[in-house]
């Protein structure tokens, strides 16, 4: 493990009675993608805003690239970039104007700023939309200009706050490609997401947060392992036997059984593999027609359920926080 890009100890921030971030300890090593996974309202944005020096922590400490976010805010600001969750460029301006504005603010001369803006627009496939107001961009284009705007001066560390929330699958893939490209060039990426598969796919390490606290941390494999042996997936020949199958499995496994949207499927987290074999025997003794009986690694969805006792509340797009 290399040197730490981010280190926090007991980081806290409250808004009135809401403990948005309630004591977070993080250690993010340099290079790679660190995923912060949590449902809407978990405190992801608040945490990122503290790390990007926009919010002063109520308590605790945070070092970003070795600089204290409060005492050395300026040093942090000149080394990191933030792509916020919402409208992180000026929607009234055109794409090229936004990039020119930032390039000038960051110290590029007028001609260099122009070249830089053109290069970025090219690299992000936005050259044709350069002179269009950003409010007329599609969701995917918006996200790309948002990220391009964070790379006007290439940062050592980039914060991406829910970069793919509300995007269609294709645009989402493009953002993923960008993230992978950034990492390949040595940039450290801290991204937040509500999507479990996104963290699973992109992140080297994941912190799961809920109600302002880190409830689990590790690689996606470690997280899965920490939850239990895995999960059992059962499929039946017909839906009419599902209620009976649920009763039999619950008795045999002694864990709650989940009924998925698919009317012939059931699943359950497994704590004791011994019981699994017994449950199969119980099912056949009860005359239930099983077409599939599979033991798998738990998905991150199940991880979340196991860790928090409630499912991740996925509310893309319409979320207000």
């Amino acid at each position: 493990m290399g040197k730490l890009a981010i280190e926090t100890r007991g980081l806290k921030k409250s808004f009135g009675k809401t403990h948005a971030v309630a004591g977070v300890d993080l250690a993010v090593s340099a290079g790679g993608v660190y995923g912060v996974l949590g449902p809407n309202g978990a405190g992801k944005t608040t945490m990122i805003r503290m790390l990007a020096t926009l919010l002063r922590p109520d308590a605790g400490e945070a070092q970003v690239l070795g600089y204290d976010v409060v005492r050395d805010a300026h040093s942090v600001r000149s080394r990191v970039s933030l792509t916020g969750q919402f409208a992180s460029v000026d929607e009234d301006l055109t794409g090229v104007e936004n990039l020119l504005l930032l390039a000038r603010l960051l110290g590029y001369s007028r001609p260099r700023a122009r070249r830089r803006a053109a290069d970025l627009l090219d690299a992000f496939g936005l050259a044709d939309a350069a002179d269009r107001q950003v409010k007329k961009y599609s969701g995917g284009m918006r996200r790309r200009i948002d990220i391009a705007a964070s790379l006007v001066v290439p940062p050592e560390l980039i914060f991406l706050d829910e970069p793919t929330t509300g995007l269609d699958p294709r645009s989402r893939n493009q953002v993923w490609e960008i993230v992978r490209g950034l990492v390949a060039e040595g940039t450290t990426v801290l991204l937040t997401t509500q999507y479990l598969d996104e963290a699973d796919q992109l992140a080297d390490r994941i912190a799961v947060i809920d109600h302002g606290k880190v409830i689990a941390e590790g690689s996606s494999g470690q997280l899965k392992a920490s939850v239990g042996a895995g999960s059992l997936h059962v499929r039946l020949r017909g839906p009419e036997q599902r209620a009976e199958a649920e009763r039999v499995l619950a008795a045999a496994l002694d864990v709650p059984i989940e009924l998925s949207a698919d009317p012939v499927a059931l699943s359950a987290g497994i704590s004791d593999p011994e019981r699994v074999a017994r449950s199969l025997a119980e099912l056949s003794r009860s005359g239930i027609d099983v077409t599939e009986f599979a033991l798998g690694q738990p998905s991150l969805d199940e991880v979340f359920l196991a860790l928090t006792g409630h499912a991740a509340e996925k509310t893309p797009e319409e979320d207000a926080a």
Binding site: D119, A123, F124, R170, N173, G181, T187
Partner: peptide, 16 residues
């Protein structure tokens, strides 16, 4: 065509 962000282009803007 499907992924307007190419690795090469991205690399060149990151090595600014």
């Amino acid at each position: 065509a499907s992924a307007p962000v190419t690795e090469d282009a991205l690399r060149s803007v990151l090595l600014a």
